[in-house]
Amino acid sequence: METKNVHVPGPEGKTQDHSLAALHARLDQLSADVTYLVERQRKIDDFLDDFGPIAKAMLNSTASRLDGYEKRGYFEMGREALGIVERVAEGFTPDDVRKLGGAVVGILETVRELTQPEVLKVASEAASVLQNAEEAAPIGIVGMVRATSDHDVQKGMSVMVEVMRQVGRAAAAVRDKRAASPMGQKKAKLDAVLGRRMGTQKSALGVERTLPPRPREAASKIAAPASKGPACATPAAPAATATVLDGVGFSADGHMTDASQWTRELGQKIATMQAVDMTDAHWKLVEVARKDFESTKTSPNIRRLTQITDVTTKDVYALFPKAPARTLAKIAGLPKPAGCL
């Protein structure tokens, strides 16, 4: 600052004077800068003085926290996680990963669905129940049945059933897909070659047990009469001869006891006694009835008649208004129709 007062006279004095002034200005600028820097340094020093203990404390706490994490196994877990990633990389081909890419959206959607607040609430409530499980009173079958009358339980059951249904559907879809895949077909072929039992996928979901063959006696007992002949009718034992008219035996209820003795003339006589005016339609039914008796050894009832011919129940009643099947059997020289149809 003393330089300010130095004055150098000379011919070039004016120019020297001029450069000196410039130098002066620069020095002034420098001095201001230095002052600013000094001030800043002081502020930083102040700050560091203040910050030092804080930083130290922070460092300490970070270190102890990391130490805690280490103790709790976070890093171990991280290392393990890396291992998992490695294993994933080993176990999956790029193709799998590409496929997975498509599924990621689905997975994320599932996660989003699962993390909806209401879903989480349900889960947390269910979890709280499980936590208090030891306080729950044991119930038996009766208690369980009684509980089903509770509205909430009913709702829960409905939800469970729906979940099970969806899981079952998904499982079936997966099974079908696997069976249809080239790998599944290969496996099936291999199983066939090795003679492994097919259809019993023991390791798969939905193992279907094969039931031991049930004795079909009960069913065959019921079916037996049906296979022998017309419905609800079993061949009756020939009725005892009660009266003999013109050498032809009749039972007590008016039926001929021996169908082979029948002639058309005899039939006509019986018809007249029964007050039936015989027409071609009547005789046709008589023939049908006699033919059916030959094959089944049973006098046909109305249902049987409608089944083996194209006449309707109405027609049969029109032809023989009173007790059609019985009248017909009498005229045709057959025993009384058995069964109740």
Binding site: I222, C232, I302
Partner: peptide, 22 residues
């Protein structure tokens, strides 16, 4: 099913039979 094996008419058939039988 068992009635069908026995060739029993169904209820509907039976009503028709009854109607036709008067």
């Amino acid at each position: 099913k068992q009635m069908k094996e026995l060739e029993l008419p169904t209820v509907r058939e039976f009503l028709q039979i009854l109607d036709e039988a008067g």
